[in-house]
Design a protein around this nucleic acid. Structure first.
Lengths: 101, 101
DNA sequence: TTAGAATATTATAATATTCTAATATGTTAC
DNA sequence: GTAACATATTAGAATATTATAATATTCTAA
């Protein structure tokens, strides 16, 4: 018994895919994994991920514009955290699935 | 306390990102959601997703080449199913996160 | 206010992805 | 065999993504 996909399903897949696209990149995924561990500054993330300042900043900007992360200034630094609780849940799931202990 | 990302983490992010890239597309995500519901033929998926034969077949081929799905011939048809149990888990997680009941 | 460090932005070349159309292959029924 | 249907593959234009380099902004300390 095949039911045509509902409009709701189409929309949810669009939306989920848009978020997933941001996770589907090694650099951004690494950033999110580190943020899942707690707030980090751009500088921290550069060091943790071994990526250039520009790339880290661009990655964060893109994820910020989609509401995945948010930031606040801490003195000289800008500290980022995961803003969307759904993304945090996904990172946890990804860890369970891809990082068996 | 910042620890540099381990080599293992780098590798796992690469691998997870490679899989996620295949989920991060509305058309392919729809296909996977339908397959999570049970085996489907290419023809079924064309109808369910409202996509062209070529596109559905290409999408399936790409996911097949990465081991996400597998297929078997059923008479005149070819029926696909989710092959990688990790992908099935992810689809379930995505449903929990993006499709609140 | 100036220097220097941290972050953001912009432009761009290189590369990858997506979708469509055309064609090929495989299967069943006759 | 051939017709008709199901699936796969190929080629290609349109578009999107990525990483680097260069520059701009924002803050702090002196």
């Amino acid at each position: 018994m095949l039911r045509k996909a509902s409009g709701a399903m189409l929309g949810r897949c669009e939306s989920a895919a848009r978020s997933l696209k941001l996770l589907a990149h090694p650099q951004r995924l690494r950033i999110l994994c580190h943020l899942a561990d707690g707030e980090k500054t751009v500088r921290d993330l550069e060091a943790l991920c071994g990526a250039s300042q520009s790339l880290v900043s661009q990655s964060l900007a893109r994820m910020r514009s989609e509401g995945l992360v948010a930031c606040r200034r801490r003195g000289q630094f800008v500290a980022y955290h995961i803003e969307d609780p759904r993304i945090l849940k996904l990172i946890v799931s990804l860890h369970e699935v891809f990082c068996p202990s």
